[in-house]
């Protein structure tokens, strides 16, 4: 089965719990026995962002055991640039947080796969691609924000309005309150959402870069931990 490593935790002295995103089974956790003690068996394979072909053995316990992991693609360029590594980890966490555990997640898996390719291939990724990633991930998880229609009355957005996470996205000023957003911003996010991720690379972006991420956080139910690093990487102010 093909999988992408989206996280890992240490288990005891020598094992690791690896969190994988798969197309058929969504989020899967598995124990990689001896992964911390011996570098031979899983060398370099269990870092987030690595694309693998894995063999899992399901036992009686809750967690499967990772018996084999062959690297299909390891992040290379994404690990040599601060923005790219932050964006890679953010993408992994976002997709993993939205994917169901044990259910089909083909589109989220495909999206993360393309995101990892983009981080390897292109010269400059840009904020537009990050917003596109978030909007698409939410869409594929069934949580697409209302952008061109009011989340409350369903009528088209024809002028600047508000954006409210709880209401489900854009609102006419007379339908509710939230963060102020321009019509252009709403239309731009909608266009990015419908554009293939790779084609969003290098597109100019103005307006809030984090409103869709806030929307994702609200619906996921917890903040994404990698967001802080990505914000640091994009802001340029790194002083701890």
């Amino acid at each position: 089965m093909d999988a992408i490593v989206v996280g890992r935790n240490d288990l005891g002295e020598s094992d690791r719990i690896v969190r994988l995103l798969t197309a058929t089974d969504g989020r899967v956790s598995a124990v990689a026995r001896g992964a911390r003690r011996s570098k031979k068996r899983f060398a370099g394979a269990l870092d987030p962002g690595t694309r693998l072909t894995v063999t899992l053995r399901k036992g009686r316990g809750e967690l499967a055991t990772l018996t084999q992991a062959t690297v299909r693609k390891a992040p290379n360029r994404a690990r040599t640039d601060f923005y790219r590594i932050a964006a890679m980890l953010y993408g992994c966490e976002l997709a993993a947080s939205l994917a169901p555990e044990g259910g089909e997640a083909e589109r989220l898996y495909g999206l993360l796969d393309v995101w990892l390719d983009v981080l390897e291939d292109v010269q400059t990724v840009g904020t537009a691609s990050q917003v596109a990633l978030e909007a698409k991930a939410l869409t594929f998880a069934g949580l697409c924000p209302a952008l061109v229609h009011c989340a409350r009355c369903g009528e088209p957005m024809v002028a600047d309005g508000h954006f409210d996470d709880d209401a489900g996205g854009a609102l006419h000023p007379w339908c509710g309150v939230g963060k102020r957003v321009s019509l252009i911003w709403l239309q731009s996010v909608e266009t990015l959402r419908r554009t293939p991720l790779r084609d969003t690379v290098g597109q100019p972006w103005t307006g809030s870069a984090w409103l869709i991420a806030d929307f994702a956080r609200y619906h996921i139910g917890h903040p994404l931990k990698a967001r802080r690093l990505l914000m640091d990487a994009t802001s340029g102010d790194l002083t701890p």
Binding site: G7, L89, Y90, E93, K225, A226, R228, L229, D232
Partner: peptide
């Protein structure tokens, strides 16, 4: 080390 997926940021390290 920085571990963004575990929420460990620069503040937690002796960088200052």
């Amino acid at each position: 080390s920085l571990s963004p997926l575990d929420g460990i940021g620069p503040d937690a390290l002796r960088i200052r």
